[in-house]
């Protein structure tokens, strides 16, 4: 059933792109053989048809576990928060992000935590900022 629903969702995505996104995001040009909207429209039609075909004749496996997906979403949000924090200072955000992620997946050994939280960000800072002379993110870095 999940397989069939994925096909329907893919089809709906294609329809949304074709009917709403393409008209709003692509300039209409009425000359030339290949207009700016031609290939995106073709891709959208391919997505609609293949999604519909898949929803009618579902095939292949689905490996979607809602509990795991929620956990992945939480990690995704932590990562996104880390990205936001990096806009302030990489040197604060990177160790904090490592600590939260490692703690979250169950790491409690001080040795490994020190390697992940202190040594790794320090090593990256040394390589990028010092050796490669490239700025790291954050106006405080």
């Amino acid at each position: 059933m999940q397989n069939r629903i994925s096909g329907i969702l893919v089809s709906l995505f294609g329809i949304a792109v074709l009917l709403f996104v393409i008209p709003g995001q692509i300039e209409v040009i009425d000359y030339g053989w290949l207009k700016p909207a031609t290939l995106p429209s073709l891709a959208a039609v391919i997505i609609i048809l293949s999604g519909a075909l898949h929803s009618i004749f579902p095939k292949g496996g689905v490996d979607f576990d809602p509990a795991l997906a929620l956990r992945a979403l939480l990690i995704f949000c932590i990562g996104a928060l880390g990205v936001w924090l990096m806009t302030f200072s990489y040197l604060i955000a990177a160790p904090l992000l490592m600590l939260v992620l490692m703690w979250m997946v169950g790491e409690r050994r001080w040795g490994w935590l020190c390697i992940g939280v202190i040594l790794l960000p320090g090593f990256i800072w040394f390589c990028v900022d010092y050796l490669l002379q490239r700025p790291l993110p954050g106006f405080l870095s």
């Binding site: 992000l97 992620l101 997946v105 169950g106 990256i124 790291l136």
Partner: peptide, 13 residues
């Protein structure tokens, strides 16, 4: 527990 957070940090950097 260290490899994947490290990979994520390296990707971001």
């Amino acid at each position: 527990s260290i490899i994947f957070p490290a990979a994520l940090l390296l990707c971001m950097t």
